[in-house]
Every structure is written in C-alpha cells, then in structure tokens.
Design a protein around this nucleic acid. Sequence first.
DNA 1: GTGAAAGCGCTAACAA
DNA 2: TTGTTAGCGCTTTCAC
Lengths: 326, 326
Amino acid sequence: MPQRSVPTIEDVARVAGVSRSTASRALLGGASDLARRRVEAAARQLGYSPNPVARALASGSGLRIVVAVHGQHAGQLDDPYTTRVVAAIAGAVAAQGVGVSSRWLPFDGTAAQVLHELGQDRTVCGVVLVNTTEALLAALPRSLRGRVVSIGIGAPGVPCFDVDNAGAAHVILRHLYATGRRRIVMITGPGWLPCAQRPVTAYRDFMAAAGMPVRLVGGDFSARSGREAVAQILARWPDTDAVYAISDAPALGALAALHEHGVGVPHDIAVAGFDDVPLAEFSAPALTTASHPVERIAAAAATAVLAKRSAPVTMFASELIRRRSA
Amino acid sequence: MPQRSVPTIEDVARVAGVSRSTASRALLGGASDLARRRVEAAARQLGYSPNPVARALASGSGLRIVVAVHGQHAGQLDDPYTTRVVAAIAGAVAAQGVGVSSRWLPFDGTAAQVLHELGQDRTVCGVVLVNTTEALLAALPRSLRGRVVSIGIGAPGVPCFDVDNAGAAHVILRHLYATGRRRIVMITGPGWLPCAQRPVTAYRDFMAAAGMPVRLVGGDFSARSGREAVAQILARWPDTDAVYAISDAPALGALAALHEHGVGVPHDIAVAGFDDVPLAEFSAPALTTASHPVERIAAAAATAVLAKRSAPVTMFASELIRRRSA
DNA sequence: GTGAAAGCGCTAACAA
DNA sequence: TTGTTAGCGCTTTCAC
C-alpha cells in the first residue's frame, strides 16, 4: 500500500526488513555490510532522503553554518570580500539542506562571548572564521571544538583554507621585476590581520633578495586607502616605478589617484593588485593582478565544516592575470 | 534546584504554573492575557529562548530561506548583485536562528520543478525570488504559497520589494537634461527581465516628453556589455552627448571603452549609471549614479518571508549621486 | 481557555 | 551487530 507522503526512515527500515535504528546506522555508515546494502537499496527504491531538521534535533547538531567575521565595524559584513564568501557558502551547502548566516566578531572583548553564544546555539552546526587572529583562535570556546574552520590562519584543531597569497605576491613581484621595475612600493593590509602579513613578508624577502629598497605604505583593503597611499608615495619616494597593492580595491584607488596626479600608468608607474575582481578588467588601464578563487575557498571551508574533517591546511593557487597596468 | 543546561519550554511552563501547551500557545501569542503575562515573565526570568530546530520539526516549517535566482546560467549566483542580496539576508536572519542558501532557477523548463522541490523540502521555511518573470510567478507551486516573496516584480500572494528604479531613471535623466544633454542613449538590461523594463519605460517617457530621440542599446548588466555598447553607439549615433546605463557595471564598461576611443568624459559624452557600487567612486572620472539600497531591500524581503506577512508592494527610494562623469 | 497526550523524524543509550 | 526504548524540544489535536 504505497502511501503518497514523503518516506521516512521508518519506511526504509520496513522495506529493508531491519529496525529503524539499524536503518539509521546504515545510512550513517555504521552497520554490517549486508544491512547497509539492503538499507541503501530500500532508500533508493523509495526515493528516501533524510530530513535534516529531525536529524538536527535528535543529534543536537544545528542546521546553519555561521560565517563569523572579525573586524573593526559591523560594516565588514557588507564588504565585497565577505559578501563573496557568504554567498559562495550559501550556494555550496544548499544541497545538504543547510543554510548560512553571518555574524560580526567585534574587536572589543565581546568576540569571545559571541563565539561562546554560537557554541551554545542549537541551530548552529559549524562556524567559518574570517579574518582570524591568533587571539581569536585562542579564545575559541571548547563548545565549538571540531566544528570550526578558518579562512586565513588556522590552529591545531582549526583547519584553515586560503589562497597562497605569499605565492601570489611572488608571482606579481617577479613580473614587476622582469618588466624592469626596481623601486616597488607595497600598499599593505591592516596590520592586525595575520594573513595580510604573508604577502608583506614575501615582499620584504623578495626585495631583500633582489637588493631593492623596502617601501611600505599602510592600507586597509579599501579603494580609499589606495588613493591615500598614492599621495604618500609620491611625496616620500618620487622615484617610485611600481605600486603593488595587497588587493584590487586599493590598486584601483591608486590608479584613480595616479590619474588625478597626472602620472602615466604603466609608463611612469606600474600598478598591480590582487584578487582579480570583476571590474579589474575595466579600469583605465586594465589592472594587472593575480587570481583569487574566493568561491572555491569558501566552498571548501564550508564542506569541511559539514564533514567535520579536513586537512589542517589547504592552500589554493593563484595565477598572474596580466593586463595593461603593469 | 536551578539546573545548569539551557531552559526548555517545559521549565518555563513549570515556573509559570501552566502546562507545556499553554506555555507554547502563550509564546505564540494565543492564550489568555493572564497566562501570557505569567509565561512571558517566566521566560524572561529563565532567559528562555525557543529552540528553532525543535520548533521547525514540530511545525514542519524549516530553517532556511532559499534565494532562488532566475537566469541564463548558474554563474548568476556569483554575480555581485546576487551576492549582495544573499549576504545581506545572511546577516538579517542570523538573530532568528535561520540560515540562507541559494539556488539557480534555469531558463529551461526545470525552474518550476526546482520550485516544487523547494516547496516539498522540509528544511525550507521560505523563498526569496530574484530576477522574477511573470512566467515564473505563474509556475509557483501551491506548496510555497504564503512563504515566498520577490525582489523585483510581484503577484497576488507574492509580496515584492525593490528599488524605485523608474524613479531612479527619472532622477538621472533630469540631471542629464539639466546639464544640457539632449541626445541621451540608454544601455538597457536583459529584455526578459520585467523589472529591467521599468527604467526603459521611464526613459522612453522622459525622452518623448522632452521631444528627444529614443536611442536604446541592449545590454545584460555586465561591464562587458557596456563596453560593447559604446562601439555601437559611436557608430550609429556619432552626435551622442550622454550615455545612461541601467547599472554601474555597464556604465563602467562604457567609461573604459570611451577612454579607449579617446572620447572625453564628461566633456564630449556624459556617463551615468545606477547602483552606486563601491568602486563607482574610483573610476576615471568618478561615476555619477543613483543609490540602490540592496542590503535594505534584501533584509526587508527576508524579514517578510519569516513574518509570513507584508504589504504587497514595498518600494525603496533612490537618490542621485553626483560625481564627475555627468 | 486549558491540560493531557500524541506526534514531528531522527539518533543514541542500552540490552540482548 | 542488532532491536528496543527513550528521548531531542516543540506544536497541535483532542477532550474537558
């Protein structure tokens, strides 16, 4: 007597000729081979798929991944990078019936408290940290153990996923060097952000190895900071022949500023960024940059949280995108 | 005997001196005034907050909002606009323990089937339609009734939320007119998208009323389409003195193209967009555009889905952002 | 209006 | 390894 509603695990068990619990175990991958085969067959036959809500309630696991973004202000959640991460995860987890939501982890002492709340929250199945610092990793509540990953730096028990930004820096610097640039200024990211230091270190090493001067200007990933950096650069080092920005937004800001100052790009000063944002191709001149597979990184991080297992470190390659600006 | 774990509705009921069912009703807003007051007091005292997972299982309601994006290809899910919508919802629903995921609604016949799946899916509590067409609205399964809203056009039973893009078009066109432009070309959005027709209609009306020629070039919201449009424009209407693009991306593409063609902006041709994307401020020259509160719109749509009630139409104002390009 | 009881669909102790 | 038995925390009939 086929019933018209969605089949439950009870139905599967009945068809497979086992108890409900055995069916459950089999579907979770933990019964005898024979049982598992029969249960799987029954499930396939009935077109069964488990109800994640019931599963979550019974196992106490939750149904949403929270993207927890550390930063100065809540506006961080709307910034283009965070936005891409969240949206990519939203697409990646759709098939498992899971959702994503986002949360700001402030700089004042409350970040740890927010993390604690997330650990207690029965609706949360995992957390993806963005813009992680060592302090934050140290403040992770044990209630989150085993279900948190990081995009950026990691820690024991906290798998991390990120683009190989040291590698990206190298690729870009080599290109600038190969095209004759020798006085290369770098516009950095915020000093508190560990993974933003990796390209800086790469830059330092590269410049030292090549016997070229280290010239750093502070920035914060914003186009505005790139524009402001240019004023400093032109004032402090008039002989600059290249600007390498930690990401495309400041690079585009720099481009705008150089244009306003009447400096020719790439003739007088070459400009390179990092990220290959959609509009990088449409600046004047088109921006030379390096790719940053944000969507793939975010999806991998989300998948790892759900699977509750992953390699401790996963790096994604970046490649040079050569255009007109350098 | 205060117990250390999170309080359940059972605890609240006990403290309030009522049965569990009365407590449940009271929290849902449906008991006697007296009971409700006592239950609310007890809940406050215990710091109780309901477990959305249990609630979802019992009521069969689901715990994620699905952003369903209609479009030509799955890449639509990664486009900057969709991305902003998804991320904004992720932030807006975090407090209610809900998550977001996204789904592509293809153009081939399968969109209706996907919607049907979403209607059956026990994890889904509501759907936010993006890039809706009339055909899509007509294909909504009844299983989704009462829990779907649209960003764009709506229908009876499907509340809609959008920026007043006809108003935005007017504001921009008036500005172009006021600054002396008379031969204004519009770069449009995709023809199949109803809400992209509103600014076109506004443009037609405006031009007709002012006795100016209607000149339309097709686009698709991409910067590339803006660039390609410029080639056509220069060839077909060499006397053009302004380009109004349906959004900032094509406007920036147009800017890049005009620069390559050696056309002076705004001297020879003024350029205006719509959206005020973060980088609009950093083009050369900085882009004149109109604001588009995507985050507020998305949050309102999500809130309405969760509340299961809303005004049939909610429009958000747009304002002129005057910069250098027009 | 209220309480008792029956689920929602699944996982996880506990015995066997 | 398997089946039996309790729950997970809440909503929702159903009588009263």
